[in-house]
Write a protein that binds this DNA or RNA. Structure first.
Lengths: 208, 208
DNA sequence: CGTAACTTGTGAAATCATTCACAAGCGCGC
DNA sequence: GCGCGCTTGTGAATGATTTCACAAGTTACG
């Protein structure tokens, strides 16, 4: 298939959220315009986004809410449960481990790791923190799909290397460090200080 | 000034990180190529990014590390301390309140709020959690520049409205909900489940 | 001083993403 | 069955961002 822009995937995910709400309200169909209004975009954008994957709408009527949400779930790979491990049980790692939103969307935290012996053994919402030295063995056994990395910046790269070597194919990184991954691993980074810096830029430069 | 793309601002912020490391290592100058290698981009991109703001380099030599980092800090508005409040002292709010990275980059958490009486009064890294009812009064008094919103999705919009009405001009939202802000307020959202869904998409669609 | 080796700054070209605009399909009422 | 109102799907146009490519400036050094 043709390459799909990340911005498109991001929007699909937002459409899906809204479709679920809309379905819960008992609606059968929805138009691209209504979907657009919610996501802060335009009806043309919605139709273009969907058109990359086929044509699911009915002219004059719109889209079937349930069919469309099923299809988007399929496109995004959300028809299944993904096994997630969390590396780093500090403040951020612990918050992530206990975040409800993940399970609701099919992301199941199967294990959490920390290097600090004081953290090891603690229970985070039912998941016991394990010693980081068990990472390789556990990955071989549990075969997690995704790793969340929530460790200090200076130890992030070695851990990425260990994860990649052990066969993890997707990493969501929260450490504020630029990381290298081998070709077969997908890396995404969330950098909260960077988001604040963008706000700072806007406060300084964007005003009348 | 001409409008600057967000992607450019994002990269500037990354260049700055690297410049600081590089400066600490005692280097005087750096070329666009070296800066690019670090940030995972190209030398042309680096030069184009910087060219929007002037020309700070010397042909044949590169950029002065200290002059360039000073200039980028200026562009991003990081020459000062920004006052930040955190609304919501649950797992995520508490983790944010205790995150070191913010203070290091000039973002000072001055106050934290929660609606749950059980949370109020707790100390998070020296900052006492206050009652959410004090929000308006405190904002008038403290004049925070930025609010971090870490509350459940269903109460996010009313809080955004209260923040906006009280004069907060920038909000970084962690609640998984689509939010509306008045024209004079800048909103950015970080949605962690959405990041996982993008990884899910890549796992399903991008592989050989 | 002259030349070689670098590196910047920047128009022009290429690529990528969004918006426009409209033909064509569908449902409903008569 | 026909016409009206609504909505999709999609090429074409526009707009935005990235990459190319090269003239011109700088240093180093014989």
């Amino acid at each position: 298939m043709k390459h799909i822009a990340e911005s498109t995937v991001r929007r699909l995910s937002r459409y899906l959220r809204f479709l679920e709400d809309f379905e819960a309200q008992g609606h059968q169909t929805i138009s691209s315009g209504a979907l657009a209004a919610q996501g802060g975009t335009t009806s043309a954008q919605v139709r273009k986004d969907l058109s990359f994957f086929g044509s699911f709408g009915k002219r004059g009527l719109g889209y079937s809410v349930s069919a469309l949400s099923t299809r988007i779930r399929e496109i995004l790979g959300l028809g299944r449960t993904w096994k997630v491990i969390i590396v780093g049980a500090g403040k951020i790692g612990a918050a992530l481990a206990q975040y409800r939103g993940f399970r609701e969307r099919g992301f199941l935290v199967v294990s959490v790791y920390d290097a600090d012996p004081a953290s090891v053994g603690r229970s985070l919402d039912g998941v016991i923190v394990r010693d980081q030295r068990q990472l390789e063995g556990d990955i071989a056994r549990l075969k997690p799909d995704i790793a969340l990395l929530a460790v200090p910046g200076d130890v992030a790269q070695p851990l990425v290397d260990r994860l990649a070597r052990s066969g993890v194919r997707a990493i969501l990184n929260f450490a504020p460090a630029p990381l290298q991954v081998p070709e077969h691993v997908t890396l995404r980074s969330v950098n909260m200080a960077l988001e604040l810096e963008i706000l700072s830029y806007e406060l300084v430069n964007k005003r009348p």
